[in-house]
Design a binder for these strands. Structure first.
Length: 505
RNA sequence: GGGUCGUUAGCUCAGCUGGUAGAGCAGUGGACUUUUAAUCCAUUGGUCAUAGGUUCGAAUCCUAUACGACCCA
């Protein structure tokens, strides 16, 4: 013990930084709980800047404005008996000017022992420095929370992608761009919610754990309920529950919530992702397209302040009317070598698909083959905002058949920058047709398609009670946020993206 | 699933055709009462992702694995 004391000075230099900070914390503990929670701020840094930035040096001196702020100390420049520091709170940063002679006796020495990254509270009056930066002349300052680990480098920030995703809190502390993305994400969701509420929609929450996973074709996650001793699925979509609500008389409903799909990870896919779905009775898919166009246009205006969006170096003008074309038209447009007759004949279409390297299973009908061709040759080229309509009935088991051409449905998908953002259709409310389509899906499942739908008898029963003519749509919120925040990867718009566990230490 | 690239100090990065592991920031000690990537002086800090292999000698070459990034399916 004594030996330790003797060597304190020397050891101190040789211990690593975390140990040094822990030693400082141990010192602090001697004077009571250092994790105090009795400081109350009255201002946020951004508010102060908004209110007082315009005032001159002299105006600030004439009428002293006292403020209390709190946050993380991000930088510190000590010049003998005075120091500057930047304090970061959720709104931004404000500079503190800390003078020994303005503080209570001994406080300045304590301040000098605090570290970058510590959470502090400060009190003082607003002033402007020589260079004109709005700052606080501090006369009272407290350490509120000791940070035991050092922050990433102040100038370059945190650049390592992996650490940014795995330790998002560090990314958020240090990278303003990252904070901006998630603030925008919040603003986007808030706008969508207000937009729909303003149009008379009711927000609802439907089961995330479902007995029968439905509403989309995708592999589900399976879990187990112990006391019921039964298998449950994490939902792949809320669709069938939302439509039950329409049957129940909730004629305009929406839900913004998580879906789970047991599929691969990529820059566009995370196992859990956020989906907006809404359903409106007495409407069809044309009205949905109009609404989608208006929603996205007004959303950009509200959140970005402009209908011009720069995404990955390309400019998108959302003020222009969005393109609309059918699946068939788009395939023909992007594959000049294919003739319309070829696309109308299963064998000819199959030959064409195989030439493209698409494996065509025997179970594939013409519609499925068309969609495979579409996904391979068209989708990623749909750069400008585009609605693609008239999806084959074969691949649209929940959508209403088109009255003129029952081969296709009254369905569309919406694309920007080569990515599917939305999927909507006039709903299939004919219970007998729906039952037939479910049976087809079950056949496909039995043939080995793990993404095919289950037969949901309870849903059919609901339809048998009568669902009014309805249109419904889903928008992938993450992909929309990617587009509006110029993010290349879905991981950049998810606070905690799924990562492989890393065994470290 | 296949391909390409990456992993070096707490962070950001150098490290050439194999020859004793480097800088800046952060930290520590000192100077400094309007700085802002503060400045000046001094200084601590490394299982070079992991495991093998080649070699007198490996951060460097080879193989495998882990994790990540990008592209393709």
């Amino acid at each position: 013990m004594n030996k330790q004391k003797e060597n304190t000075e020397k050891d101190f230099n040789e211990r690593d930084e975390i140990e040094q900070r822990k030693a400082k914390l141990a010192e602090l503990r001697k004077n009571g709980n250092p994790f105090r929670n009795d400081f109350r701020r009255d201002s946020l840094s951004a508010e102060l800047k908004a209110r007082y930035e315009e005032l001159s040096k002299e105006e600030l001196e004439e009428q002293p404005i006292r403020v209390k702020v709190a946050g993380r100390m991000m930088t510190r420049r000590v010049m003998g008996k005075a120091a500057f520091a930047h304090l970061q709170d959720m709104s931004g940063q404000i500079q503190l000017y800390v003078k020994r002679d303005s503080l209570p006796e001994g406080r300045y020495m304590e301040f000098k022992r605090w570290d970058i990254g510590d959470i502090i509270g400060a009190e003082g009056v607003m002033f402007k420095t020589k260079t004109g930066e709005l700052s606080i002349m501090v006369d009272e300052i407290h350490l509120l929370t000791k940070a035991l680990r050092p922050l990433p480098e102040k100038f370059h920030g945190l650049a390592d992608q992996e650490t940014r995703y795995r330790q998002r809190y560090l990314d958020l502390i240090v990278n303003e761009k990252s904070r901006e993305v998630f603030k925008k994400r919040s603003a986007i969701i808030d706008y969508i919610r207000r937009y729909l509420m303003g149009r008379g929609f009711i927000e609802v929450e439907t089961p995330m754990m479902q007995v029968i996973p439905g509403g989309a074709t995708a592999r589900p996650f399976i879990t187990h309920h112990n006391s019921l001793d039964m298998q449950l699925y994490l939902r792949i979509a809320p669709e069938l529950y939302l439509k039950r609500l329409v049957v129940g008389g909730f004629e305009k409903v929406f839900e913004i919530n998580r879906n789970f799909r047991n599929e691969g990870l990529s820059t566009r896919h995370n196992p859990e992702f956020t989906m907006l779905e809404w359903y409106q009775a007495y409407a069809d898919y044309h009205e949905l397209m109009d609404l989608t166009e208006d929603l996205i246009r007004s959303l950009a205006k509200e959140v970005l302040g402009s209908t011009t969006v720069i995404y990955q170096g390309r400019e998108y003008d959302l003020s222009k009317p969005f393109h609309r074309m059918t699946v068939k038209e788009s395939i023909l447009a992007f594959n000049p070598e294919i003739a319309p007759e070829q696309l109308a004949d299963r064998e000819a279409a199959k030959t064409f698909a195989e030439k493209l390297g698409i494996p065509v299973k025997d179970s594939y009908g013409l519609g499925k083959i068309q969609i495979e061709i579409f996904e391979k040759t068209v989708e990623s080229s749909l750069d400008e905002p585009t609605f693609i309509t008239a999806y084959p009935t074969e691949v649209s088991p929940l959508a209403r058949r088109n009255d003129e051409d029952p081969f296709v449905t009254d369905r569309f998908e919406f694309f920007i920058a080569g990515r599917e953002i939305a999927n909507g259709f006039s709903e299939l409310n004919d219970p007998e047709d729906q039952a037939e389509r479910f049976r087809k899906q079950v056949e496909e499942m039995e043939a080995g398609d793990e993404e095919a739908m289950h037969f949901d008898a309870d849903y059919i029963r609901a339809l048998e009670h009568g669902m009014p003519p309805t249109a419904g749509e889903g928008i992938g919120i993450d992909r929309l946020v990617m587009f509006l925040t110029d993010s290349a990867s879905i991981r950049d718009v998810l606070l905690f993206p799924h990562m492989r566990p890393k065994v470290k230490n």
